[in-house]
């Protein structure tokens, strides 16, 4: 959905990384796409672990009305605590210092994510592979610190099952809590398995850590942007075939999802 807000700024928030140069790239890519579309007066990014930081961003933004969209996968510690605290905002709309600041939902909980996950899974498997012989695993970080962090994944798994797509199974799995992605061979029994990382970027976790847990790398590789060739599918494990996709947040359609979260805000939260 297109919006026309030439007097408003859009601020996209990302996690960023002090170690991996690819973590912030999807946020910049989506920001560049949206800026070119001319829907907002200006488009900015700010990060927790990179620059501009959440604390540095305000002097850069000249519009008086600002929509903030967290480019985060789930609602939880970051979107509920860290981002509002660092940006000094409270609730859906904050008015301060002559600015009206709207805080939208994170991209990961948008209803379009289900379709994007299915599309991504179908894109990477070979044409000859039947979905009925294929298990789809949506993999997330998982942490015992926050229950909400897995909810975004389990919600997607239920939505994909309900979509009627004929996958043999649709499962959730995590890096740091059960069911562990490292156990994919025992969690599944179909000949083909496709794993889609429910992450924002092809960075530390989805590009470097999870491939080791899956067994397609023996140790973490260099960052994706620092390698000549992105990983090749499929990977053979005896009579099993594994497909591993890039992170869902790198899909160019996420630019539309970000704008959609602004429209959703206007329709549901704006008084």
């Amino acid at each position: 959905m297109l919006v026309a807000k030439p007097d408003c700024a859009l601020l996209i928030l990302g996690h960023g990384s002090t170690e991996n140069p690819d973590s912030s790239q999807p946020s910049w890519d989506h920001a560049d796409t949206i800026e070119k579309s001319g829907q907002f007066g200006s488009v900015h990014c700010a990060f927790w672990k990179e620059e501009p930081s959440f604390r540095q961003i305000w002097p850069m933004i000249e519009e008086r009305e600002i929509y903030i969209v967290p480019n985060f996968i789930s609602e939880g510690y970051f979107t509920r605590q860290v981002l509002p605290r660092e940006l000094e905002i409270d609730g859906h709309t904050t008015v301060r210092d002559g600015r009206t600041i709207h805080y939208c939902d994170p991209v990961g909980i948008h209803s379009a994510m289900t379709g994007l996950l299915i599309k991504r899974a179908k894109e990477i498997i070979d044409d000859s592979v039947k979905l009925e012989d294929t298990t789809l695993i949506i993999v997330g970080h998982g942490t015992n610190l926050n229950k909400k962090s897995t909810e975004a994944i389990t919600d997607q798994v239920e939505a994909i099952k309900a979509s009627g797509e004929p996958f043999a199974q649709v499962l959730d799995a995590y890096m740091e809590e059960p069911p562990f992605i490292a156990d994919w061979q025992t969690l599944t029994d179909s000949p083909n398995v496709v794993v889609v990382p429910f992450f924002i970027a092809d960075a530390l976790h989805s590009y470097q850590d999870i491939p080791v847990l899956l067994g397609i790398e023996t140790e973490p590789t260099a960052a994706a942007s620092q390698r000549d060739v992105f990983r090749q599918n499929p990977h053979r494990f005896g009579d099993r075939t594994l497909y591993y996709s890039s992170a869902i947040g790198t899909d160019p359609s996420l630019a539309d999802v970000i704008v959609d979260q602004v429209s959703y805000f206007d329709e549901h939260y704006r008084s």
Binding site: E51, P52, Q56, I57, W58, P59, M60
Partner: peptide, 9 residues
């Protein structure tokens, strides 16, 4: 990023 704007502000 933001360095010029920070100085002006």
């Amino acid at each position: 990023p933001a360095v010029f704007a920070t100085w002006i502000a």
